[in-house]
Amino acid sequence: MNINMLLDDLLISLVGTSNYPLPITEYHSLMGLMATVALSLAFSPSLLWLLFGAGLCLVEFVLPTAYTAVIMGVAAMIVAAVTPLMPSPILQVILWLLLSVVLLLLFRRLAPKRKTPAIRDAVEAQTISEILPGQTGRVLYEGNSWRARCSDETRAIALNEKVYVIGREGTTLIVLPDKL
């Protein structure tokens, strides 16, 4: 006796005891749904891990996760390979979590570090607003307007004065006036 015959018998017994008979089209739709559920239960754990890993890898195309989803997908595919040796689902999940963490740490260590653009030493800029003592103003630096403050908190810098950029704190440039 195969699964389709079992499902047919189950559905006929359910429909036969019902006060509302099902039309034949709904009967076949319900049979298709039950067959799909029965087949989904017949997937092997290795195939489920492979599908899960492929799904995680595909997530990277939709949501950029800095390769985290891809690494977790690769870990799931490794678990799929060792699933026949490890039949316990709990051990498989623990192995997947451990592999994900180890591969993430390894990838982060081996990935090239991004260099933050640094301000060159003593580059010229020009104020486009007055910089009052201890406050910020605006300077024109490399064609863009930047927020700036004077490194000498007691000194004011006038409008259209030449300054030297000596550092940066976040998006604020630290400047010194041309004429000390």
Results as ranks from 00 to 15, higher is better:
128 I>M: 11
81 A>Y: 02
109 R>I: 09
90 I>T: 14
106 L>Q: 08
128 I>P: 00
88 S>D: 12
83 T>F: 00
104 L>V: 13
138 R>C: 00
136 T>D: 10
120 R>E: 15
100 S>Q: 07
119 I>E: 11
119 I>P: 08
140 L>K: 14
94 I>M: 10
114 R>T: 13
131 I>Y: 06
132 L>M: 14
134 G>W: 06
79 V>Y: 06
82 V>D: 00
103 L>T: 00
108 R>P: 08
90 I>W: 10
87 P>F: 05
88 S>Y: 03
86 M>S: 07
108 R>Q: 13
98 L>M: 13
84 P>D: 02
105 L>A: 12
108 R>G: 11
92 Q>G: 04
98 L>D: 10
82 V>K: 00
118 A>F: 11
142 E>D: 15
100 S>D: 10
118 A>M: 15
125 A>C: 03
83 T>K: 13
95 L>H: 00
105 L>T: 00
110 L>K: 15
99 L>M: 08
101 V>G: 06
86 M>K: 01
113 K>M: 14
97 L>P: 03
107 F>D: 09
141 Y>Q: 06
120 R>N: 15
87 P>Y: 03
116 T>W: 05
98 L>T: 10
124 E>H: 12
141 Y>A: 04
89 P>S: 06
136 T>L: 01
141 Y>G: 08
139 V>M: 12
79 V>N: 08
141 Y>R: 03
98 L>P: 02
111 A>R: 15
116 T>S: 15
94 I>Y: 10
138 R>W: 00
116 T>R: 13
95 L>I: 08
125 A>I: 07
141 Y>L: 06
135 Q>M: 09
116 T>G: 12
140 L>I: 10
120 R>T: 12
94 I>G: 03
132 L>Y: 14
100 S>V: 05
103 L>G: 02
84 P>F: 02
86 M>C: 10
109 R>T: 12
90 I>N: 02
87 P>G: 06
108 R>A: 09
106 L>W: 09
133 P>C: 04
140 L>R: 15
129 S>I: 04
107 F>E: 05
97 L>N: 03
120 R>A: 15
80 A>R: 02
134 G>L: 09
86 M>D: 02
139 V>P: 07
103 L>N: 01
91 L>S: 03
96 W>T: 00
90 I>F: 11
118 A>K: 14
117 P>L: 13
114 R>C: 01
140 L>G: 04
